[in-house]
């Protein structure tokens, strides 16, 4: 097997007349934490389902873990851990019962040992008798991850795993993902959270079923061509209203006690902001372009031109 854990070319899927994924090409290397970003309904879930053999693509081909995604979905399923967007374990079973069920489905040799180890790894021993339905979002997500890891998959496909989970639990979750990646497990994770995107080793941005960009976070920031100014001081709300009519200031976003102004044409932006630089009570500074700016920018570009 090559180092390309996922390697698909021109994969498409339609539901009825709607083309949900359009000629997606994606390469993911072993040990990466690959972030999959895009607005709601952009085709992230459908793409992930095609990668793990749940859906058959209409066209295109590729491999996942070296298996053909069209013909070898059974082999893929046994080596991939897929965590669905919605909690998809049994709420009327306890944590332990759920894990034991999953372990038996994967025909693990020593179910009890495997479940014990999984409970231990994710700190679930004390709660193993609790019904899954009684757990909070963070614990549910932990349990789901434990279940996905039971059969020691080589690839984890996580579909918005941290939606509705508190920041502390999210941080722990990501620490766990990095630990897994260090062990050589490849992770593909879709998310809406920018702080999570920044923790990925590589990212892809998908909108309306089309993959728009992919690269490391630094590459994406550099490739966006955006410039950014940060303003702090008084009267920022009025300033925001005034800047709303300035074409070069494509994004004007309040951020705590500051205002972030960014645009693709750096020179034009600077020129347009010139009149405000001298205004009293506020301070202008060149800022760093953040991933969020890049994605909002991408989203706006595509939103204007739906397929």
């Amino acid at each position: 097997m090559s180092d390309r854990v996922i390697d698909v070319e021109g994969v498409s899927k339609s539901f009825g007349a709607k083309r949900v994924v359009d000629k997606l090409s994606l390469q993911v290397q072993r040990g990466e934490i690959f972030g999959f970003l895009g607005p709601n309904g952009s085709g992230k879930t459908t793409s992930i389902r095609m990668l793990c053999g749940l859906l058959t693509p209409d066209e295109g081909q590729g491999t996942c873990l070296g298996y053909d995604i069209r013909t070898q979905s059974a082999a893929i399923k046994s080596e991939v851990g897929y965590m669905t967007q919605r909690f998809s374990f049994y709420e009327d079973l306890s944590i332990r019962e759920n894990l034991e069920f999953v372990a038996s489905i994967y025909q693990l040799v020593n179910t009890r040992e495997a479940v014990d180890a999984a409970l231990q790894n994710l700190g679930l021993q004390d709660r193993q008798r609790q019904l899954a339905g009684a757990l909070s979002g963070g614990w549910k997500q932990r349990m789901a991850l434990a279940a996905c890891l039971l059969h020691r998959p080589k690839l984890l496909l996580l579909d918005e795993p941290t939606a509705g989970v508190d920041p502390k639990a999210r941080r722990d979750f990501w620490a766990e993902l990095h630990r897994l990646a260090a062990e050589g497990i490849t992770v593909l994770v879709s998310t809406h959270y920018m702080d999570e995107a920044e923790r990925c080793t590589r990212l892809a941005y998908i909108a309306y079923g089309k993959l728009l960009v992919q690269g490391t976070p630094e590459e994406l920031v550099a490739g966006s061509g955006l410039s950014n100014w940060t303003v702090t001081g008084n009267g920022l709300a009025e300033l925001q209203n005034e800047l709303a009519h300035t074409a070069a200031a494509e994004q004007v976003v309040p951020f705590g006690s500051s205002l972030h102004v960014s645009g693709t044409d750096g020179a034009a932006l600077e020129h347009a902001l010139q009149p405000y630089f001298a205004r009293s009570g506020i301070r202008w500074e060149r800022g760093d372009v953040r991933l969020e700016d890049v994605f909002i920018h991408l989203m706006r570009d595509t939103a204007d031109a739906p397929p």
């Binding site: 059974a74 991939v80 669905t84 919605r86 998809s88 489905i105 994967y106």
Partner: peptide
């Protein structure tokens, strides 16, 4: 309805 079917199908069943 509860979404558990997707999980069943993603496993080698």
């Amino acid at each position: 309805e509860r979404g558990t079917m997707e999980n069943l199908l993603a496993m080698p069943l």
